[in-house]
Design a protein around this nucleic acid. Sequence first.
DNA 1: CTGGAGACCGGATCAATGATCCGGTGCCCG
DNA 2: CGGGCACCGGATCATTGATCCGGTCTCCAG
Lengths: 227, 227
Amino acid sequence: MWLRPSGRAGRDAPPLSRDRIVEEAVALLDAEGADRLTMRRLAERLGTGSTTLYWHVKTKDDVLDLALDTIFAEVAVPRRGEGGWRADVTALINGWRATLLRHPWSAALLGRPMLGPNVLARSEFLYATLLEAGVIEPHLTAAAYGLSNYVIGSALMESTWLTTTEREVEHAAREHVHANRDRYPALAAHGPFVAGDDWDTTFALGLTWLLDGIQATIAGADGAAPA
Amino acid sequence: MWLRPSGRAGRDAPPLSRDRIVEEAVALLDAEGADRLTMRRLAERLGTGSTTLYWHVKTKDDVLDLALDTIFAEVAVPRRGEGGWRADVTALINGWRATLLRHPWSAALLGRPMLGPNVLARSEFLYATLLEAGVIEPHLTAAAYGLSNYVIGSALMESTWLTTTEREVEHAAREHVHANRDRYPALAAHGPFVAGDDWDTTFALGLTWLLDGIQATIAGADGAAPA
DNA sequence: CTGGAGACCGGATCAATGATCCGGTGCCCG
DNA sequence: CGGGCACCGGATCATTGATCCGGTCTCCAG
């Protein structure tokens, strides 16, 4: 009883808000990955009991949803109109990808509806930019979805590969493909597994193709020059 | 003891092989989704004890990996050279997408290394077709990855949305965006949530853009006509 | 035959985890 | 100053992945 500054466990310890929980969850996810996130472990890091968390949050999935939306705050929304729609979209998409890769656990969580404010704000920017560029309806949805799906798929694949790699898996895969190179001639000669891929340029190429396709659908075709 | 045809539980019941386990796992996943797959439930459907499964399979993740590779057997590998590389690639990718959508649980599992024989065979076909078409190295990897990532991302998004929808989520999302239409003007006016998307044509458009981009990198550009 | 080796099966059990119940504790406001 | 309310957490439950260990059946060597 003596010397208990505030009734809380530690001496500092801000009063444990939902924000603090999510913040710490992101830290834990970054540090140890998605499967190590436990309500108990999270609570321990926060210096509270595990059950206390349930007062601020309904379920563990809520924590994950909130954590996912939180990191989207990191992707900068470009100021529009600086270098044309292409530059703006490219900047957004690259920032998006960078954030997903900076938090490898995020890619595995993309299989849940993303409706947080940060995600919506980025989607809004994407739609607005494309609209202003002159992309019209059948292509508008395709463009927005196409770009999103491409980033998501790329990040998912790269995260999976990079996380899983290092262990014996990459080695085993390489060896297996090589051992059966009669069955997989093209893969053995050129496929992944043979040389460390340059993810960045690979991603950039695909993105260029998508942007070119989108640009071609614009009537006047007066967007930024195709580089 | 009397009347025990074979010592097995039921009268038929083929002796429970690894294949039978995986087959039943796929059925269960199709019927009830990824989160309802339990070793106990799976064993029950097979008419055995749950612990017996561990004799044929090391972990639950093994079951998932095997199940994932199994459904890839469904995607038909086109006979090459019928309508040019574009037709072949398009057929493969569309089949791929169809399979992923037919088993919505699969999209969520894509965050694990896919190294099963069926997956590898499809990758091999993709690489071989692109190679033969004249796609060369910086673009080869980008093309293969780009296409894969695009299908994966698309299937993941569509499955997520379709699965989650039906419930109140779609309704709530639509309403939320509309309520804050001052913050999300473009989304409220054109975004998803406003009209049921035509996933098929949306997907086809993005695929066309990617294929156009790939085709443009081919030297002689003598692939099939761009339709 | 026959007896044992090995494939195959499953009940009991363990540890980890998500979630709830319910009884606190301290602060604030009337 | 006293009651209400936001907030906390120990005990507890059900579920699940996984292991231990002892049982059963088959089949082949001697």
